[in-house]
């Protein structure tokens, strides 16, 4: 699908791609710098050049692959779910993240350094390429533009990105929200689910709230008091419970609407749907409280 140039849809997708690149694309510069640091001075410039070239080549190959993969039924849903996880990871405070990656292992030769850079880019660029593929809605022009924007960030932009996010941390929150929104649109665009969504339009709202409640959980849980923290798990779990009944009703042709129920089994199912979540929720709260008490007594 090609979007019309400078239409609202095109500019919106471009803005989403720029934001995604800002929050996800800068890792390679860091990896290249860290790997090159371990080498002799004479080889550093060569490693930086070929590492950047390799990183860009890997990213271009992955972008082409993503365009084709997202057209395969099922992959749009998988990509959407992956973006929800990426958004959540982006917002989760992790001060030790920079210390936990492959580039920490010292590279002793030019070939080893190049291999480390290319492998690290292949692993760490997946999130960026997937998000760009989802935001581009299949438009090749937008994917090429996304790649063209991420390349300068890989090569020169790391300092600029760090300065920007350090001055305005809300860019990270906005990036997380845009990733969640892209994830939601990928899930509802999944060709395998399209006929089901036609018949269950209201579930789109449930899925949107589910996506936002899971991906933005690190943000709103930081604002909740200790007593309210279990809501971070309970709210998505309750939405999944309700959604599961909708899916089961359409898959096994069950009657889950109480106004249309006329057998005791159907009333039982209806009771399970609306009240069945209470015992597991109570058990979860009890367990949560037990663990909290145990950790409090261990600290005391």
């Amino acid at each position: 699908m090609e979007l019309e140039f400078f239409s609202a849809a095109f500019l919106s997708a471009l803005f989403a791609i720029v934001l995604i690149d800002l929050v996800l694309a800068g890792d390679n510069a860091l990896i290249i710098g860290l790997v090159a640091r371990n080498l002799p001075k004479g080889q550093q410039r060569k490693v930086i050049f070929w590492g950047t070239f390799g990183a860009i080549a890997v990213r271009a190959a992955m972008a082409i692959l993503v365009v084709y993969i997202l057209n395969v039924p099922g992959f749009m849903l998988a990509g959407g779910i992956a973006l929800v996880w990426i958004a959540r990871k982006l917002l989760t405070p992790d001060p030790d993240a920079a210390a936990q990656h492959a580039a920490q292992a010292p590279a002793v030769s030019f070939a080893a350094a190049l291999r480390t850079i290319v492998v690290a880019d292949a692993i760490m660029g997946v999130d960026n390429v997937l998000a760009i593929g989802g935001a581009a809605s299949g438009s090749i022009v937008l994917i090429v533009l996304g790649l063209a924007i991420s390349v300068p960030i890989i090569v020169w932009g790391s300092h600029l990105v760090i300065t920007l996010v350090d001055r305005y941390p809300s860019v990270i929150l906005l990036g997380g929200a845009v990733l969640a929104w892209t994830g939601y649109s990928m899930v509802v665009r999944e060709p395998l689910l399209a006929p089901w969504f036609e018949g269950h339009a209201a579930t789109r709202l449930v899925i949107a709230i589910l996506v936002f409640s899971i991906s933005l959980a690190p943000w709103y849980s930081a604002r909740l008091s200790a007593r309210m923290k279990p809501l971070v798990v309970l709210l998505p779990a309750l939405l999944i419970w309700m959604l599961a009944f909708e899916v089961a009703a359409s898959h096994w042709k069950l009657q889950v609407d109480y106004l249309l129920a006329n057998e005791s089994g159907e009333y039982l199912l209806e009771g399970l749907r609306w009240q069945g979540w209470l015992p597991p929720a109570a058990a979860f709260l009890w367990l949560h409280e037990q663990f909290a008490q145990r950790s409090r007594s261990a600290r005391a």
Partner: peptide
């Protein structure tokens, strides 16, 4: 993602 975690 790794890069932005360099900034506290």
């Amino acid at each position: 993602m790794l890069l932005i975690h360099r900034s506290p």
